[in-house]
Design a protein around this nucleic acid. Structure first.
Length: 666
DNA sequence: CTTACACGCTTTTTT
DNA sequence: AGCGTGTAAG
């Protein structure tokens, strides 16, 4: 073999960006000197994203090739924004840049190199619901009596398995630490786990957790791949490091083996994902793990006024385990956060409405205001009032576009075309056919896997004699659709494939099954439009499964046409965002902190960090609301105590407001 | 075997 | 209040 060097022309490194002008000295230090292992402790609102973006731009300007940079983010949205901002800064596109969530990066690596560890590049990705369906079918197959009151619900089994995988511990460990009541059935759960693993492999499916565990296995087991990748990634940058888990930290450790340029950014005070396996130890132990690591601190807050920050600092000081920080604001003292006691959730909703109306009149667009809460159901009353008053709003999170039944039904057919042994997809698609329900779907799929060698064999009559009447007609329809999409698929026409599913029968099914079928048909049209931008089925399906959004948030009908709308969000979803005014609702005991978190100090401290995250979203105004009653599904309306996160605060960090009802005659 | 309907149980947070 | 399971009818 002969080596041939292809010379790649690069622009001469020249500094176009005036870094010193755009960044403060703390940030500048990071941008210019973050070589080798580096930990950046970035307080809330300290411009951590900005710093990362400028660091990437700086590297690119110095001639580092984009494909040698790996930048991981927490959400898809964040990754798009980062890429965009880097491109805006340098006025150039960087296609090659590796930028995305760990799950995305894992997906990409496994498609490219999975074959080294026996993973087919055409694998499908299961979302949480798919994985739950598979767990249920495992339970059935193993003849486990799930009706026993004592037996954990499938959802619980799912979280046990997922948690143990994300923390790299075995099932019994997880049970011992977090679900001691199920310790005695560890064997059963292990049996479910191994069948689940087997089924997944058999149907060439990866679930979300696999995207991490298999990526780690890939670079652990294959020396060739590890060498290649660790040579490639000259610079690795990780955002939100406080919320990474042990798998993720091992992945980046291995990937940085060769060059050692690993820059992690985070704030231990904002670690809020331990419940799904995030290891706050990653950030706490980073200096120990990488001896000689440089530590940077970003302690200037550009977001909140000093009063809001004082309250935040006071609150977080009740937590024991943390890095020492001294966050200070560049803004004035500003207005003290308001603490408001309301009679009940309804009065709370009325207060919110009046307050946002006032703020609106003062010149704050609705978009500058957010209502935040611990859990989705806390927003029910408010949503009703907003609808009544015709105030446009957007609920962040909630049901995602690609998680809706009608979207998943249609995509199931495409998944079969992509990966003909995808059990979940078969069952899903078949179940939408008339005359075929849960029972026959499974029978048909079993028959297919046992007798057929390829998808073509579904057209071979000798295998399908056992189907009669209605079921047969349903199956024939299914075959016709498969035939159509296979044909369209040959020319790589994704939108035509979708059209043949929708027009070929799903439309009718949709109308008969859903009463809001018109909205759903509109969604399907949008799906077709979205598909039009793709020419690779694999990529299209991966993007849809990983929750790549194309509409941004689900904008409610009321808000669709009104350019301005209020944001409603869980605190988790509000991470990384900011608003001029933040209204925190439902600050009551058992809801926030959540009842289940009171069992251990660890959980309590995580809840307090969540409270900290909520407070530090606010720039100018912060309203903390606690109604005196709440609705309990066992007892009906019950008295609610204020959250301990409020009660523990000294009274000088907030202003108490008294509510009096005055009658306004219209 | 499918479908329709009623009851009862549950509700944290999510890539 | 909504979903999933359980039951009875087609």
């Amino acid at each position: 073999m002969q080596k041939y060097i292809l010379k790649i022309q690069r622009q001469v490194p020249c500094e176009n960006i005036d870094y010193a002008k755009h960044l403060n000295p703390e940030q500048l230090e990071v941008v210019k000197n973050a070589d080798g292992p580096c930990l950046v402790l970035a307080g809330a609102g300290s411009g951590k994203t900005r710093t990362l973006i400028y660091r990437v731009a700086y590297l690119l300007e110095r001639g580092i090739d984009p494909h040698n940079i790996l930048l991981t983010t927490f959400t898809n949205k964040a990754s798009h924004q980062m890429r965009e901002r880097v491109e805006m800064l340098l006025k150039k596109n960087f296609e090659g840049l590796w930028c995305g969530t760990f799950h995305h990066i894992g997906n990409r690596l496994l498609r490219m190199y999975g074959k080294h560890i026996g993973i087919k590049p055409g694998f499908n990705i299961m979302d949480e619901e798919d994985s739950l369906t598979m767990i249920k079918s495992c339970l059935r197959e193993l003849n486990i009596n799930t009706k026993d009151k004592f037996f954990p619900a499938p959802r619980v089994i799912q979280s046990i398995m997922s948690y143990s995988r994300n923390t790299k511990s075995d099932i019994s460990d997880t049970l011992d630490k977090h679900y001691p009541e199920f310790l005695q059935i560890a064997d059963t759960i292990n049996a479910v786990y191994s069948l689940y693993t087997k089924k997944k492999a058999g149907s060439s499916n990866l679930d979300y957790d696999d995207l991490l565990t298999e990526t780690l296995r890939l670079i652990t087991q294959s020396q060739i791949v590890r060498d290649k990748l660790s040579a490639q990634f000259q610079h690795i940058l990780v955002d939100e490091y406080q919320d990474t888990n042990i798998l993720q930290s091992e992945i980046i450790t291995l990937l940085s083996e060769r060059h050692g340029n690993i820059l992690v950014v985070g704030d231990d005070a904002q670690s809020i994902y331990a419940f799904r396996g995030a290891a706050i130890e990653n950030i706490l132990n980073f200096p120990k793990q990488f001896t000689g690591a440089k530590i940077f601190r970003l302690e200037t807050n550009y977001r909140s006024n000093q009063s809001i920050l004082d309250l935040a600092n006071e609150s977080i000081s009740y937590n024991s385990r943390q890095y020492e920080k001294h966050l200070h604001s560049v803004k004035d003292v500003g207005e003290k956060p308001a603490l408001i006691n309301l009679r009940d959730p309804r009065q709370q909703a009325m207060f919110v409405i009046q307050k946002i109306t006032e703020l609106n009149d003062e010149g704050y667009d609705l978009k500058k205001i957010a209502v935040l809460f611990r859990a989705h159901y806390q927003s029910a009353e408010l949503e009703m009032e907003l609808l009544k008053k015709g105030i446009p709003y957007v609920m962040r999170g909630g049901m995602k576009f690609f998680e809706q039944a009608h979207i998943k039904d249609v995509l199931a057919y495409l998944k079969i075309a992509q990966n003909p042994f995808d059990e979940i997809a078969w069952i899903r698609a078949l179940s939408t056919e008339e005359g075929i329900g849960a029972g026959f779907s499974l029978k048909i799929f079993k028959n297919y896997t046992e007798k057929c060698a390829s998808l073509k064999d579904i057209f071979n009559e000798k295998y399908w004699g056992f189907l009669k009447n209605r079921t047969r007609r349903g199956f024939e329809h299914f075959r016709r659709i498969i035939a159509d999409i296979t044909k369209e698929g040959e020319s790589g026409n994704l939108d035509r494939m979708l059209e043949s599913i929708i027009k070929g029968g799903y439309e009718k099914y949709c109308a008969s099954r859903f009463d809001n079928y018109k909205d759903r048909l509109d969604d399907l049209k949008e799906l077709v439009n979205f598909a039009h931008t793709y020419n690779d089925l694999k990529k299209f399906l991966a993007d849809t499964s990983l929750g790549e959004t194309f509409k941004g948030e689900t904008v409610l009908n009321t808000a669709k046409d009104a350019g301005d709308y209020l944001v409603l969000s869980t605190i988790h979803q509000a991470k990384g965002l900011e608003w001029d005014a933040v209204i925190l609702i439902g600050l009551i005991d058992n809801q926030f902190p959540h009842a289940k978190s009171k069992e251990s100090l660890r959980h309590m401290e995580e809840e307090r960090r969540l409270f900290y995250v909520a407070i530090t979203r606010a720039k100018d105004y912060l309203y903390m609301l606690h109604p005196m009653t709440r609705y309990d599904y066992n007892y009906g309306i019950v008295i609610a105590r204020p959250s301990m996160f409020i009660e523990e605060l000294p009274e000088n960090v907030y202003t108490k407001w008294e509510i009096e009802e005055g009658v306004e005659v219209l």
